[in-house]
Structure formats: structure tokens, C-alpha cells
């Protein structure tokens, strides 16, 4: 495999936000790496029920300039910490109906354990550090802004 053919988040044209439906299999394929025997993919889908109520969709609001920069940095941090072959993540923007994928994280390492650990760390940091907010829209038509119970040290100026 040509080493330049797999995805790397440092590439200037990397995109980590999408207003179009995600294609997890394609993202996984982009991360296949000749030195990596373990690939882990996490998909976060919009689920039907939350807080005992039926959800019709989630609308994701994003502060794009900082979200794009922060996701790239989280991926680069994980590559360095876990010595990954590569890592990728894409998060949806806008309205995402129940059953569609809202976020995908892929990690590739020589072995599976590091790929699992890095993947978990990346999705945790995306949920708590990236300026993205979910508005849960219920089937009755009302909505609320969800919380991820972010630890205080990860927020506040």
C-alpha cells in the first residue's frame, strides 16, 4: 500500500464536520494502514428514546472554526499518545434523524488494545471539548438542549 494513500488528520484538506449523511465503511477504508492489524470504529447513532420520551431527530449546532481545529488536535494527540497508524473522526452538523449516524471515530494501531483505548479517549474528548451542541427534538414537537455533564475543568474560562 502506498503510505500516502491512507488518511491522516494533519493533512490540510482534512474535513471533520459534515452536513451530509456519513458513510462509516468509507471512513474505515480510508484508515486501513499497512502497519496496522487492529482497526476500531465507533459509530454514534441518533436513538429513538431518551429521558423516557420519543425523539424524532437531533439538530447539531456547531461553532465551526473551533470545532474543526479541536477535532484535528484531539486526533493528533491520540496518534502521538497511543502511537497510532492513523485516526479519523467526522461529526454531523444540522438535522440528523433517528437511525442516522451522528459521529464516527476510527483508530488504527498495530494491535487492537491501543486502538480500542484511543478510540474511547477520542470520542470522550469530542463529546466534552468540541463546541458542538445537540438539540433533541421530540415527536411532540418540543425540544431541549442536551447536556454531556462535562467536567468543570474541561470548560469555563
Amino acid at each position: 500500500m502506498n503510505p500516502s494513500s491512507f488518511f491522516h488528520p494533519a493533512a490540510e484538506d482534512s474535513v471533520f464536520l459534515s452536513s451530509e449523511p456519513l458513510h462509516p465503511a468509507s471512513l474505515l477504508q480510508q484508515c486501513q494502514h499497512p502497519e496496522c492489524g487492529g482497526l476500531v470504529m465507533f459509530c454514534g447513532d441518533v436513538r429513538l428514546r431518551n429521558m423516557g420520551r420519543q425523539v424524532s431527530a437531533i439538530e447539531y449546532e456547531v461553532y465551526v472554526p473551533l470545532a474543526q481545529k479541536t477535532i484535528r488536535q484531539i486526533l493528533l494527540d491520540a496518534i502521538q499518545t497511543y502511537q497510532l497508524g492513523t485516526a479519523h473522526a467526522v461529526h454531523r452538523i444540522g438535522l440528523v434523524p433517528v437511525g442516522q449516524t451522528a459521529v464516527v471515530v476510527v483508530t488504527a494501531h498495530r494491535h487492537r488494545m491501543e486502538a480500542y483505548k484511543a478510540n474511547e479517549e477520542i470520542i470522550y474528548r469530542i463529546k466534552h471539548e468540541v463546541p458542538i451542541w445537540k438539540k433533541e427534538i421530540f415527536t411532540e414537537g418540543d425540544f431541549h438542549w442536551a447536556s454531556n455533564d462535562t467536567p468543570r475543568e474541561l470548560n469555563a474560562p
Binding site: 463529546k127 466534552h128 463546541p131 438542549w145 454531556n148 462535562t150
Partner: peptide, 18 residues
Amino acid sequence: SPIQAHEPIVVLPPSSGG
């Protein structure tokens, strides 16, 4: 931090992506 008056300042509540 000093604020640059010519550029909008954004206020970001705790994140809830994912």
C-alpha cells in the same frame, strides 16, 4: 485575555456533541 474589539466574541456553553 484582552478582547480584539473588531472581531465578534463567541460564548460557548458546555459541549454536548456525540
